[in-house]
Amino acid sequence: MKLIPISAGDFHADGGALFGVIPKVLWSKMYPSNENNFTQLTLRCLLVDTGGHKIVIETGVGNHYPEKYLQNNGVTSVTELEKSLAENGYSTEDISDVFFTHLHWDHCTGAVKNVHGKPELVFPNATMWSSKKQWEHSKISNPREKAAFHTDILNFIHDSGKLKLVENEGELFPDFEVRMFDGHTPGQMIPFIHTKKETFVYTSDLIPTTANIPLLWIAAYDLDPVMVMKEKAIFLEEVAAKNQVLFFEHDYYTECATVAKTEKGFVLKEKFKLADLI
Rank of each mutant, 00 (worst) to 15 (best):
M1N: 14
A13W: 01
K29D: 05
Y31D: 04
S33Q: 04
S33P: 01
N34Q: 05
L46N: 06
V48I: 15
T50H: 11
G51M: 12
H53W: 06
I57H: 05
I57F: 03
V61C: 10
G62E: 06
E67M: 12
L70S: 08
L70K: 10
V75F: 07
S77H: 04
V78F: 00
T79N: 14
E82A: 11
K83L: 14
A86M: 12
D94C: 13
I95H: 01
V98M: 09
T109A: 10
K113P: 02
N114L: 03
V115S: 14
G117N: 12
P119E: 01
L121P: 07
V122Y: 06
W135C: 02
E136L: 13
E136A: 09
H137W: 08
S138Y: 06
S141T: 14
N142H: 15
H150S: 00
S160G: 10
L163A: 08
L163H: 04
L163S: 08
K164T: 09
E167S: 15
N168L: 13
G170M: 07
E171M: 09
V178F: 04
R179W: 06
P186A: 05
M189A: 02
P191M: 05
F192C: 03
I193Y: 08
H194E: 13
E198T: 10
D205E: 11
N212V: 07
L215H: 04
L215V: 01
L215W: 05
W217L: 04
D222A: 15
E231R: 01
K232P: 02
I234R: 07
E238H: 10
V245P: 00
L246G: 08
E255V: 08
K261W: 07
A275L: 09
I278R: 02
